[in-house]
Nucleic acid binder design. Sequence first.
DNA 1: CCTACCGATCGGTAGG
DNA 2: CCTACCGATCGGTAGG
Lengths: 201, 201
Amino acid sequence: MCPDSPTRLERKRSRIVQAAHQLFVKQGYHGTSMRQIAHKSGMALGSLYNHFDGKEDVFHAVFMQYHPYHEVMPALMNARGGTVEELVRDAANRMVTALGSRPDWLNLMFIEIVEFKSAHTSQLFNQIFPDGLQIVQDFSHLGEGKLRDVPPAILVRSFLGLFFSYYITEIILGNNAPPEFNTNALDYMVDIYLHGILERE
Amino acid sequence: MCPDSPTRLERKRSRIVQAAHQLFVKQGYHGTSMRQIAHKSGMALGSLYNHFDGKEDVFHAVFMQYHPYHEVMPALMNARGGTVEELVRDAANRMVTALGSRPDWLNLMFIEIVEFKSAHTSQLFNQIFPDGLQIVQDFSHLGEGKLRDVPPAILVRSFLGLFFSYYITEIILGNNAPPEFNTNALDYMVDIYLHGILERE
DNA sequence: CCTACCGATCGGTAGG
DNA sequence: CCTACCGATCGGTAGG
């Protein structure tokens, strides 16, 4: 299923989205001008409006194209393990790899939340939901008899939340906090999650 | 230690900070103009500059005055319980009450991260750190012999992270996800954390 | 796809 | 002379 080679028009659009993405995550949405996007994508200001209705439309395209689910969903679907513990650890490692390749992902989500009050999230959610449901079901099958009595949806929600927890506390504590707040922090936090969901033997 | 009754100057400054806070969390930093701040605080634009060096200086004051730690630290320090489990559940309940009274807190932190790359966080951290250390020590004393072998700093970090996890996944899933993602979600997530940190008997 | 602009508004500062 | 603050306007830039 190779995509057809993109048309000239598609390539131009893509260059705008790429330039806008870099500027938005670095400067914020209101902190970025259409002139900057035009300059970075090597086009005239007026030309942007041949591809997009306006600035918000550009962000919408950036949000859909650069949302971390593009990396996260394959990572979760490829996670493997003979036991729940192995599967969760493998999934966590794949999440870290996936998100590590996209250091901008939090900024992108913050802009969507603060500047747009999550206006584009509903459309995205419907796009992702079928795959998300599949992951929930696979996980709850493997975990039968081994997991505590917690709804599968909550297991997935807290697994995803784990990475918000880790990355945001990292930003806040960061270089300010003593090293014991950071040393092996992700391993410990995944470990706490794992022991939290597994039935005691 | 009652504060002296504020001077006229202090009251004016406080009105500016209050108005700016409301506008920033609703519209974002770049989405709010000094003119709007002036209008909302009932002052002339030029007068703002008798109280602040500029717009960023206004945000700095907003961030310091409205940071959720003002509610969170007392909540954590007042948490009580005979066992670790009781203490954690009480602390979690107090956190929810504290953060529930400040529905703007996430937006404020997001602006600081996205627009200022956490430039003001270091100063705030130093201000909070002594109390934070006290909480860590109290917690690790009570937990001796009952907690798994996890550094106390990590326990505190993941406890704080729990609320980022909960509130951000709530924003993302929100009204889009089926109800099983939301029903009793916080209770379940606190429960997973608790079982994750307690030694198995 | 670009140049040349628009109505308005930006953050910040002038003199008094 | 000071402070606190005013109405008016500065040079540039916003989205379109």
